[in-house]
Simulated scan of single mutants.
Amino acid sequence: MTDEPPEPTTVVLVRHGVTEYTTGRRFSGGLGGHNPALSEEGRAQIGLVAEWLSPLRDRAAAVVTSPVRRTRESAELLGEAWGVPVVEEPSFAEMEFGAWEGLTFDEVGEQNRDELLAWFESVDARPGGTGESFRSVEERVLAGLDRLLTAYRGQTVVVVSHVTPIKTLVTHALEAPTASQFRLQLTPGSVTVLSFRDPDQPGPPATVRLLNALPPPQPAFLDHGGW
């Protein structure tokens, strides 16, 4: 009799709820930024996610969160609703935007058009002069993923994070170029689900099972945008 193959590791990715920066379409980075709190609308969004995903209370091993305030607050709402422990993982924090922090896309375009265009053309460009490139964010996010898959092998884990880290994980699962992140849209309070096979098992190493889904009845295209 052969051993049963290990179950895949299911990673349920939740983008935090909105803040005043999200609704204002302003760049909002990680701990090096202004670190705004969830708005009342943002807390309500996560409440809907908690209700929609309530079966996870009996399945999720943990709620893993970026240490940034808006994700930590979102994770605590989920953990409290489900009775699931909340664990911080710094590698899932948002990109740092340097001097762009708090500015809108239009403001950055007016003040630093060439710099903004360079950012869209190269995954190695650093926003705001001192910010993080997409490449550097990818490196730390994938290091965090390795730790996550080791700690929760064969289990279901919820990860509360941000636009850039979630897009990074999706493009990694698809084996797509880093620059393809520019073609993905993620709504605040949305849910994306990835499944990772054990490295010794046949088949694709990862699959995307759900992308940018919202609790009904809110349509997914009604997005506040922003970072």
Rank of each mutant, 00 (worst) to 15 (best):
T2I: 15
T10M: 08
V12N: 06
L13M: 09
L13T: 07
H16M: 02
V18Y: 00
T19Y: 00
T23P: 02
T23Y: 00
G24E: 07
G30N: 07
A44F: 05
G47D: 02
L48M: 08
A50S: 12
E51N: 12
S54K: 14
V63R: 07
V64T: 07
S66H: 03
V68N: 09
R70I: 08
R72T: 12
L77G: 00
G79M: 01
P85A: 11
E89L: 15
E89M: 15
S91C: 11
W100V: 13
G102R: 06
D114C: 01
V123Y: 01
V123F: 02
V123A: 13
A125L: 02
A125C: 04
P127G: 10
T130R: 15
G131W: 03
E132Q: 01
S133Q: 01
F134C: 13
S136M: 10
G144A: 09
D146P: 06
G154A: 08
H162G: 07
P165K: 09
L174C: 11
L174A: 15
P177Q: 00
A179K: 12
A179D: 11
S180M: 12
L184S: 06
L186A: 01
L186S: 01
S190V: 07
V191I: 15
F196N: 00
D198W: 01
P205E: 12
T207L: 13
N212C: 07
N212H: 03
L214E: 01
P215E: 01
A220L: 08
L222T: 06
H224S: 11
